[in-house]
Design a binder for these strands. Structure first.
Lengths: 335, 335
DNA sequence: TTGTACGCGTTATCAG
DNA sequence: CTGATAACGCGTACAA
């Protein structure tokens, strides 16, 4: 192994003719060092190509300057083409980069993976942890928070833990969409709900229920898991159980996309016979046949907001327990 | 800050009634420790909830047990819905998890981001670096390799550096697809090429050129950047310049998707008037109108293979300079 | 087989 | 404003 010995503080100090302590001060931007000395130190640093050893620094400062983003790999969504997780990753990455922190990505699929995440994060190998959209009532966020480790979730923790979270306004967005359908004269509005062990699935269904109930309309529900396959099945089920439906709100664009095709195969015309609204506004939504009316969620911004909250917590500030990002109805041709 | 003091080796040693060194041996799986003592140490570890301090360990072992995956954030592709980068991330994550290593994700979009990546990786804060599909001739991989830092790229480095890489067989896949078009009787086969500063863009064009040339057919080329927008523009351009074309090979499924729509708008029927073949086999490909015939690339496997190579290099082994993963033609209805 | 003692590269405290 | 010097927590020759 070509272990080209890296220069240390010591080496820089010798070259600059000062003490290690002084070099450290300059490197860390202390203002209490005379200008000419700073100059000399900086020259030495440049000449030697000195780069601080993070491990040594961490050992004494107790900070790692890195944050973990935990993704539930099991969720097929992670790598389906809805861009939810890539979007979150990007937002988190942007905000961490701005703060000069590292992003440690942990895919927690298997039980073994989950145990690994627990061991690693609770071992304080990172300064804070971001949880993206967990399934079920994962106790880990609450556990870490109780250990005093900064934690932020995307979506309200389902186990009721008092962990700060950021989420998009599912309920508000869905309510707007369903009201839009009602205002367009639709009266038999069905929904293809998402998985009920995920906040996004739960809240989008709540939004639907509240709105149709308020309008005195019937609830027509089928369940899916956000994927296209499940959307196809759910659409067929709805058609079989409620042949008279005149609109469908799908809890994800992928399910809406599948619904479009299933409706066509069933001989229904969109939007004349049946109006379809999705949720997410993935890129494909503008290219479906017909282009999909959907609810846009600010997914990159979600990642950024989570990260900002986490950084504030890590800095010792207190943050609001919940933060809700606005969603927006994007009207195209399917409704 | 709730800095619940973590137990150290020292504490475990006291509780178990042995020396620090012995505890260290047990923790690191040395076999030279008497069984009863191992037992006692393990009990103490469990009781105290001891977790090794990675920074301290890194300081002495010179290993960080973490690897960086560098993504060019600027590429709009990263967060378009083609799943290329998510797929790579997943593959890398799986393989690193199996090796009990951490994944540090670095989005290198801006020049500042690039500098940051260089500083971080050349500072040996990771045990190795994976580069995903760079634009242009980035000198960083070569530079790191020369510093003795394990590096693996996805795709042949464009600056000619002798860095090991893994890639999918672009040329072979495209050749098969184009021959398939020829065998179907198509004679005026156009291509919508990808960006020529990326290996994937270059090689896919090469595959097209070699195959049409070998068949004595004309080259009909328009350029895009893998996105749908660029696909729309390229398709219109091709139609204007070569109204007689009877087939199109698009260097990405997104461009192919856009081509489908552009062709429909131009009154051409797919596949009767014009056959369309894409590249990637994204999930959407099975849901386009008509479903897209395309070349499937094993993208998750690409991530895994890159990681395996990197781990081998980091372990001191030597690996083959290039590794090519097979691609496969998936025939649906568009050609 | 076990323990002692040193060193890894920094930051922080405290004199000067 | 600068320089010794003591931690930080661990792995590992070396000695016992």
């Amino acid at each position: 192994m070509t272990t080209a010995q890296r220069p240390t503080l010591e080496a820089v100090a010798r070259l600059a003719g000062v003490s290690r302590a002084t070099v450290s001060r300059v490197v860390n931007g202390s203002t209490t060092v005379a200008e000419p000395i700073q100059e000399a130190v900086r020259r030495a640093v440049a000449e030697l190509g000195y780069v601080p050893n993070l491990a040594a620094r961490t050992l004494v400062t107790q900070r790692t300057d890195s944050f973990a983003l935990v993704l539930p790999e099991a969720a097929t969504r992670v790598f389906s083409d809805d861009q939810v997780f890539p979007g979150i990753i990007r937002g988190v990455g942007q905000e961490l980069e701005a703060a000069d922190k590292q992003l440690v990505l942990m895919l927690a699929g298997s039980p073994a993976g989950h145990a690994r995440v627990e061991r690693y994060t609770s071992g304080r190998h990172v300064d804070g942890v971001l949880f993206a959209s967990l399934h079920g009532a994962d106790p880990l966020p609450g556990k870490l928070a109780r250990l005093g480790i900064p934690v932020v979730c995307s979506g309200r923790p389902l186990d009721g833990a008092e962990v700060p979270y950021v989420d998009v306004d599912h309920v508000g967005g869905v309510a707007r969409a369903v009201r839009y359908l009602i205002d367009s004269g639709r009266r038999r509005i069905a929904t293809m709900a998402g998985p009920q062990d995920m906040v996004a699935g739960i809240e989008r269904l709540v939004g639907y229920r509240e709105t149709v109930a308020a309008a005195g309309l019937p609830e027509l529900v089928a369940y899916g898991d956000f994927t296209r396959e499940s959307g196809t099945a759910a659409m067929r089920q709805l058609l079989a159980e409620h042949p008279g439906l005149d609109a469908v709100f799908a809890a994800s664009d992928l399910m809406a996309h599948a619904a479009l095709r299933a409706l066509r195969e069933a001989g229904r015309h969109v939007p004349d016979d049946v109006a379809v609204v999705g949720f997410d506004d993935i890129e494909t939504a503008a290219y479906t046949e017909p282009p999909l009316t959907t609810i846009r969620q600010p997914i990159v911004e979600l990642g950024r907001a989570m990260t900002r909250q986490l950084l504030r917590i890590a800095a010792g500030e207190t943050v609001e327990q919940a933060l809700l990002l606005p969603t927006e109805l994007v009207v195209r041709d399917s409704a």
